[in-house]
Write a protein that binds this DNA or RNA. Structure first.
Lengths: 173, 173
DNA sequence: TCAAATCGGATGACACGTCATCATTCGCGC
DNA sequence: GCGCGAATGATGACGTGTCATCCGATTTGA
């Protein structure tokens, strides 16, 4: 038997457990957001970014660098959200190629509620389930995995928390 | 200021780190599978399940209970994979509603390669990045989160590892 | 100054995932 | 046997995500 890998069964058990956890957690968060606030997780990320921005508005390119998506994904998502009245788009004076994306008052109400409820859900399913030690280990382990994947590429703007919101209720996915 | 939640900034840092890690890890695994084997992660899960099954075939309902997807997702995915020649479908004699899904020889070749390369990638990005202690903590923490989400509902068939494959090379996402 | 490269963003095609719904078949109680 | 509810699986509609491509505006540099 050619040894397939040096990883043993107990390690694979950890992987499977980790894998299942991610799926269930994602699903639970998605369901809660949809049920309580009528939005998806992509919606939530866009809304949070806009909510934390000065004047509740961002250029599409700033949105891209803030949440780290591909530009066409942002474009599609913003288009869909505009149809539902969560955001509006309008032209940019200083750069006629560009456009602003701004939170509507509806969008503002939605994100305010969603932040509260979503934070509670994350608390319940994530923080409350873990001891302080486990939490600390997960923090360092996550950083290790990230740096294993990206051996220090450009390290560009991944600071999602650079703008201080009104109530410092930073969920900031 | 009404305290928005009892979670402090350092805890939110852990959440953000965890969140970013999941995104990058998923992306890295997706990219590797697509590049090395020309398949997606959904493809991989279906192929693994079939590979581990007796005669490399399963009823759609068994596929559903094995990997835990919704039935329409399985149906759509199998349809797409059949078009690409990875699996075939044929009628079931004992239950005329049902149908078998079977690995083609192409599918078998693909999954054999993919298991090797994908295991290596998981090793590199996950196991090699973590100490044994961290790994153990992640295992128990994952279980805690899962049980926080599902307060022991039915606990039904989530055993993805109930069938022993030929070479015991269990990646089993 | 003007042509080329680059940037900002939109779009179309396609894969993926969920929901609701449908048709067929089973199975079970009568 | 018969009838009805449940199971099996497919399908269509729609939201989501990626890739390739396009177009107009801007920057650059010769």
């Amino acid at each position: 038997m050619t040894e397939v890998s040096r990883i043993g069964e107990s390690e694979w058990d950890v992987w499977r457990s980790f894998y299942a956890m991610r799926r269930r957690l994602d699903h639970a968060l998605e369901v809660q957001l949809q049920r309580d606030s009528g939005i998806s997780r992509p919606d939530f990320e866009i809304l949070i970014a806009l909510f934390n921005a000065p004047d509740r508005r961002l250029r599409v390119r700033e949105l891209i660098s803030t949440i780290g998506w591909e530009k066409s994904r942002v474009s599609h998502q913003v288009t869909r959200m505009e149809k539902r009245g969560l955001v509006t788009k309008f032209e940019c004076d200083s750069d006629r190629r560009g456009s602003w994306v701004e939170l509507t008052s509806t969008g503002r109400k939605v994100i305010l509620g969603a932040m509260r409820e979503h934070s509670d859900t994350i608390k319940r399913y994530f923080f409350d389930a873990l001891s302080p030690d486990e939490l600390a280990v997960i923090g360092t382990a996550s950083a290790s995995i990230i740096s294993a994947i990206e051996p220090t590429p450009c390290d560009a703007s991944l600071a999602l928390d650079n703008v201080e919101p009104a109530g410092s209720s930073t969920v900031a996915e």
